[in-house]
Design a protein around this nucleic acid. Structure first.
Lengths: 212, 212
DNA sequence: ATGAGATGGTGATTTAAATCACGGTCTTCA
DNA sequence: TGAAGACCGTGATTTAAATCACCATCTCAT
């Protein structure tokens, strides 16, 4: 099977792409599957070629708090950080859309950092991006009330799915925001009253305008 | 002035230490001073040789939410990540104890990654450590009630200062936990009732046992 | 078509936390 | 020494959110 790595990772050098095609194992995941589990050892670095991954932080009771998305051209930062030692995953990664990842044996991490400038830049950029996303998530969590968190959540969804019609399951949103279904239900109603969203049939909502 | 860099960074190669002594600018900060401001451009990578730094995330109203400490032998991860582009600081760093830092011009970052294995390891380890600390902070923020947050806060303080007698200012704790003085005051009283702490004179408390 | 299971809406109640209001106790320094 | 300023404690009230209770839909497989 031939992958279009150039498309997903346009900044990679030709040599690196060739090396990737040679060394990397291709894995396909279906929606709902788990890409990485909390506590699981990383055996390889994971690069997302296609699809969409949702990353969560879990607490002891199994509550799954949403932290960020991973998209094509991105990588699981934690799998990279574990390169040297045998480290466990600190997060849970669930497949949203059918996803193609390439898994690179950990030992190439350091070697390629040395050999390919584009890999070096990619790794540092990955760290920076994930760190910043985490800071933003922390902001939302620490400084915002639930109504604002919900609005920010909807904005993220709209942005990531590039559509103003979202399939939203209140129960799931509640879990991901560490709230409860009833609260989300009432807040959704308020957003609709404020004209920010329109509640359609089923589990569909239309985003009208999420700016206050 | 001669710095004991070997002591603060025991894993650095001799050559790297020599290079550091040559290239780095030494800066001394007094308690209360600001090491890095949110929005400020990084001109250099900051390594902590001695002292203690408290790092905060700020919201628009200037609320300062505590995220983690930086200690000798550690570095400001964000200053490293900004190495390539001109990036602004996302956090606020305040000096707790008189602190000595060495400031390294950004251009050496990439060069040394190439030249010194110990620098490479240090940078990756810094990223990993900060990322993990941020995840832990997020846990506390997302999953814990204020009483638990306070207990975790006190544990961190005890650990970092290596003493069971803490100088605690309720007003400040409230700000750092994004709560209010009154709430902290009442929770402290409860912790004292449960025998977990003892409230001494002034702003002193003694940690007895913070495990439930 | 119907009953099970998943989802959603909503009133009532409880709880955690924030806020208000006020008075007390230190420290300090002119 | 005594007034200002920085803390702290605590009752009362309000607010945001969680929880409880219950019923309404919707989906889907038999």
């Amino acid at each position: 099977m031939k992958l279009d790595l150039r498309n997903a990772f346009p900044n990679f050098e030709i040599k690196l792409i060739e090396n990737l095609e040679d060394k990397a194992e291709i894995k396909i995941f279906e929606p709902g599957e788990v890409l990485m589990k909390t506590g699981q050892y990383f055996k390889s670095i994971l690069l997302i070629v296609d699809g969409l991954i949702k990353v969560y932080r879990e607490d002891e009771e199994g509550q799954e708090y949403f932290i960020y998305y991973l998209q094509p051209g991105q990588a699981c930062a934690l799998s990279m950080m574990s390169a040297s030692k045998q480290e466990k995953s600190e997060v849970l990664g669930k497949v949203v859309n059918k996803t193609t990842v390439i898994a690179i044996p950990l030992e190439y991490m350091d070697q390629w950092m040395h050999d390919y400038k584009s890999w070096y830049n990619f790794v540092l950029e990955t760290y920076r991006k994930r760190f910043e996303e985490l800071l933003i998530t922390l902001d939302h969590t620490a400084f915002r009330n639930m109504d604002e968190k919900l609005i920010l959540y909807l904005k993220r969804e709209q942005l990531i799915h590039r559509t103003s019609i979202l399939t939203i399951n209140n129960t799931e949103v509640a879990q991901e925001l560490n709230s409860s279904r009833e609260v989300i239900s009432r807040l959704m109603k308020k957003l609709a009253e404020r004209g920010m969203i329109k509640q359609l049939k089923n589990q569909l909502i239309e985003i009208i305008n999420l700016e206050y």
